[in-house]
């Protein structure tokens, strides 16, 4: 791990300002993803701004009947909150399907949004990767790409976003509140936070330099059924091969792209009277396999159709 300087942020706006002033600064909250990458020297921050003790650990009701979840609320605290469990079960299920209990106890919801891909070539500093070194090339394109993207990928990057939580948030149409380096606050739709790779896979979000996530805001819960379905190689403590969040008439897919994939084509097809299988077909029509991950397209179609039918998981 490279040497760094460290400070505890006095407040959120101060943290954002400091981060913008220090090239190579990173926010540190739970640290479960950042410290892992720092040990591998894939992340090499020169300055750490610890935001873990900022007063952003509350979950509060909003005026319109939703919830505001502070950015440093832990994954465990969010999933255990009675209001989340009863009104937003898809979010509780998504959180509980991710990582291990020890990691969820430490990792924050803000950090969950900002975590980086688990692409093995991103993690292997001996292999070219356009995320780590723009222009170096993508090793996954012709490599072991069983877990990689089937939607929205580019020649430059075929990685996926590893978050389960963000998939549920996409289906719930959550907003993400931030503070920028000038002290201004803004709110982005969850679907606007992450970027598809295009030619610049190293630019992963639409946040500005220094911009700090302060809260996730859930609108009032949608009418209808909520469910998170995750398919993976082992039953616990594993990333998804495919996941689907269902929240009333809205849906989002995980492990298919570099961002949570809102299934708006399937939603529109359903609204127009399409069957579950037809809706899934509409969403996956543009999906492209890389060879080793072709099965994901069939898997996605089947899981989405089964979820829409309400077929029990086991």
């Amino acid at each position: 791990m490279r040497s760094f300087t460290y400070e505890r942020a006095p407040d959120a706006a101060g943290a954002a300002k400091t981060a913008a002033e220090h090239p190579g600064a990173r926010f540190l909250a739970g640290g479960t993803n950042l410290l892992d990458l720092m040990k591998l020297e894939i992340e090499r921050p020169r300055h750490l701004i610890d935001v873990g003790r900022l007063p952003l650990a509350e979950i509060a009701e909003t005026a319109d009947g939703g919830l505001r979840i502070g950015a440093v609320v832990t994954n465990t605290a969010a999933a255990s909150d009675r209001r989340v469990r009863t009104r937003y079960p898809v979010l509780a299920q998504a959180l509980l399907s991710g990582a291990s209990a020890q990691l969820r106890n430490k990792a924050t919801v803000g950090g969950n949004l900002m975590q980086r891909t688990r692409c093995p070539y991103f993690y292997d500093a001996a292999k070219p990767c356009n995320k780590r070194e723009p222009g170096a090339g993508c090793s996954a394109l012709g490599g072991l790409n069983r877990g990689h993207a089937i939607l929205g990928a580019s020649e430059a990057c075929v990685a996926t976003n590893p978050s389960d939580m963000a998939v549920a948030l996409s289906a719930l149409e959550a907003q993400v509140e931030t503070v920028t380096a000038t002290g201004a606050t803004r709110s982005l739709a969850l679907d606007e936070v992450h970027r598809l790779p295009g030619e610049t896979p190293h630019v992963e979000t639409n946040l500005e330099i220094g911009e700090l996530v302060t809260a996730i805001v859930l609108p009032p819960p949608p009418e209808g059924r909520q469910e998170y379905r995750k398919v993976r190689d082992r039953a616990s403590y594993a990333g998804g091969l495919f996941s689907l969040a269902l929240a009333g008439e809205r849906m989002a897919m995980g492990a298919v792209a570099l961002k949570p994939w809102r299934a708006s084509k399937a939603e529109a097809a359903r609204a127009a009277g399409a069957s579950p299988a037809e809706a899934a077909e509409a969403e996956l029509a543009e999906a492209r396999g890389l060879g080793r991950n072709d099965f994901k397209i069939t898997l996605a179609r089947r899981v989405m159709a089964a979820a829409l039918e309400g077929t029990p998981l086991r």
Binding site: Y6, G31, T32
Partner: peptide
């Protein structure tokens, strides 16, 4: 009282 992975945490935190 809460279980965590001590390897993924800085002591100073």
């Amino acid at each position: 009282g809460v279980r965590i992975n001590s390897c993924l945490s800085l002591a100073v935190m």
